[in-house]
């Protein structure tokens, strides 16, 4: 049993949960974007890291890392584009 891999997988699952809770609880598009881009990406990072440790093959690890980089790039760009569209369309950020 590889405890480091297991801990990494658990952390990944935790961040996924946090992302979804944020998506459901946060008050407006902009803050929901915060929850999704940050929590889910890092959750995926921990999960893939755990899987890579488990497999133990450097090539598979590198492939998982490339996939993670792509997800990161895609979701950061998407979140910027959606946030911008919301602002330009006149969706005011929620204020307390």
């Amino acid at each position: 049993m590889n405890w480091l891999a297991l801990a990494s997988l658990a952390l990944g699952a935790f961040f996924f949960l946090a992302g979804t809770v944020g998506l459901l609880r946060f008050p407006d598009v902009h803050s929901r974007l915060h929850a999704l881009t940050k929590a889910d990406n890092v959750g995926l990072g921990f999960l893939l890291f755990g899987l890579a440790l488990e497999v133990g093959s450097p090539l598979v690890g590198a492939k998982l890392f490339v996939i993670w980089c792509l997800v990161l790039l895609a979701s950061a760009s998407v979140s910027h584009v959606i946030a911008r569209a919301a602002l330009r369309r006149g969706v005011e950020p929620w204020q307390r």
Binding site: F14, F15, A18, G19, V21, G22, R25, F26, P27, D28, H30, S31, H34, A35, K38, A39, N41, V42, G43, G45, P93, W94, Q95, R96
Partner: peptide, 27 residues
């Protein structure tokens, strides 16, 4: 960057899972 994004996720997770939402968003 990796260090910062982990702490970003921890920050968001703390805010999302807190019993009362503590957000003061602004531009």
């Amino acid at each position: 960057f990796i260090g910062r994004s982990v702490s970003g996720a921890v920050d968001v997770a703390r805010r999302a899972l807190a019993p009362r939402l503590r957000l003061a968003p602004a531009l």
